[in-house]
Design a protein around this nucleic acid. Sequence first.
DNA 1: TCAATACTGAACCAATGAGTTCAGTAACAT
DNA 2: ATGTTACTGAACTCATTGGTTCAGTATTGA
Lengths: 101, 101
Amino acid sequence: MAALADPTRVEIVDRLSAGPASVTELAGDFPMSLRGVLKHVHVLEDAGLVHTQKRGRVRQCQLRPTALAATARWLEERRHRWERRLDHLEDYLRDNDEESS
Amino acid sequence: MAALADPTRVEIVDRLSAGPASVTELAGDFPMSLRGVLKHVHVLEDAGLVHTQKRGRVRQCQLRPTALAATARWLEERRHRWERRLDHLEDYLRDNDEESS
DNA sequence: TCAATACTGAACCAATGAGTTCAGTAACAT
DNA sequence: ATGTTACTGAACTCATTGGTTCAGTATTGA
């Protein structure tokens, strides 16, 4: 969850959703050193969101859809719980939450 | 999104899903100073996830279900995009992602 | 009025995290 | 064999963040 807190990381995942890429290829798309990108990839890998493996001297990165779904499920569960418990407060909210920003 | 990266903040939201609470009430549930809790509440408020308002000397905090749903929608959109684009890679993944950890 | 309550502002600290550079090491290509 | 490519380890900087304390200020209740 915290892995998706950083906008650069979200972009990397977006990028990877178009297909696997090497670290160098990824680095080409970001205004950041290759080392910086690699660090983000590592964070994403630790979080289980991407899988990498080295072939020769090139490290290929790809998404792991299952872990992605798990994260979405985590949020959905919470959302449901939150909304269910909030049902009986709706009229109270209608009074105090006029500004919908 | 980054607002939900901190576990304490998630707990606070969980707590608030049971009903509105004052800062002091919230602080009672966490091994943290009142000031610390207040800071988290502020982050959540800036993120639009909770709404607070002061009545007298007490600041009441409550959830904003709409913003919560928006966050969930954000993640769901991405998940769908990611999974759709990954469809044609499934066989490739089956070869290289044997270890399901 | 006066003491207690509930929060707030400001200043501070330690730890984390994003990002860098530089000096490697391993694999390719010629 | 050698230069280039692609990554890695280590060390460092800088900003942010989680958290604290302390001294207010405003509200409430007796």
